[in-house]
Design a protein around this nucleic acid. Structure first.
Lengths: 191, 191
DNA sequence: ATATAACCGGAGTGGGACTCACTTTATTCG
DNA sequence: CGAATAAAGTGAGTCCCACTCCGGTTATAT
């Protein structure tokens, strides 16, 4: 008998159904409302709201799950590559991640708009990943040490929020390259 | 008797009142709806919609006006400074511009969200300004020539969209510095 | 002065997020 | 088993917006 009440069987099922349904729809680039999400998941809106305080929180939860994979990467990358190379790879992964989430970018917008606590947490985790890479690079002397992950993430904000325009991937790659050049040690000091 | 029908006197008055009212509210950081904008301007919603197809278009128009000043800068800067210096100054101005418009950033979000044609035009003009500076820098050999204004603007997207967080200005300055370091000639090629 | 084209008002529509009073059901325990 | 009961589910209804529509009003041309 767990202390924190282990969620009834049907409740768990419904919660899962809601998350899966919403994720699939968003990744497919569909913009559907709460009523439709609930309908497809085979429940009523009230049920959706029992599990998620708000539409945004549901979206944030989906996003958080996708983020889990991404946040596991830095360690793996640092094990296989030199720090600066690892950083570069991770930046590319971020773009890739944005590509996957691009379908739900419109959904994310509402989340970004109202700096919900849940999403703030996602940003924090992302920034932490970058911090680890930056610190490693700084220690190796190949990346400047006066920039933190939060700043880099901010700088990438434009990329992540990119709309599904033609050729956005090329643009994103250019921006990452630009950013990386700015980050490399030796590019600094002179002004 | 001008050919393109010069807008009736009362119509012009109302249009101006709407723009002024909305601008003031947004710059003050207020998020008000169309009904409230109309009420404060002393007209009815119908009048608002006679002048602007949509709420977003009204916002975009306000933004466009603010942009006019900014787009006059590059020429002045290039006249007074070396191209790379001019570019740097302009980037700082962009941040400043974001500061002024920060109050209406939430409003801008909806504009950025639905790539409205009117706002696309604003982005285009901004990119053109950057292009002029970049070309001048490339000609002088102090700025790399393989990046266009559009890309730089994208990279600055995160800055412009920044929320009113504590210390955002410092972060913005860091990002601009980072970006500029990436743009400077010589930082490139190596990969 | 009259015609008429443009303008204005504001109740009404539609759509989407969210609520709540009530019903159903999983779980627990005698 | 078979209540008892607390948790979960339901969905019609509310609220809040952006946006529309059309009858009444007003500026301008002749």
């Amino acid at each position: 008998m767990p202390t924190s009440r282990p969620l009834r069987a049907d409740a768990r099922r419904n919660r899962e159904a809601l998350l899966t349904t919403a994720r699939e729809a968003f990744l497919a680039g569909e913009d559907i409302g709460v009523d439709e999400i609930a309908r497809r998941a085979g429940v009523a809106v009230g049920t959706l709201y029992r599990h998620f305080d708000t539409r945004e929180e549901l979206i944030a939860e989906i996003y958080r799950q996708a983020l889990d994979e991404l946040c596991a990467e830095p360690d793996a990358l640092l094990a296989r590559h030199a720090p600066d190379r690892a950083l570069r790879e991770f930046l590319d992964l971020l773009v890739e991640h944005a590509a996957t989430s691009r379908g739900m970018s419109f959904a994310l917008e509402s989340v970004l708009a109202t700096d919900s606590a849940v999403f703030a947490d996602s940003r924090r985790r992302m920034a932490d990943c970058l911090d680890a890479l930056l610190r490693a690079g700084a220690a190796a002397g190949t990346i400047r040490g006066d920039v933190d992950g939060w700043t880099v993430l901010r700088a990438l904000g434009g990329v992540c929020g990119m709309r599904a325009t033609e050729g956005w991937r090329d643009e994103a790659a250019q921006i990452v390259a630009l950013l990386f050049d700015g980050l490399r040690y030796g590019a600094t000091t002179a002004r």
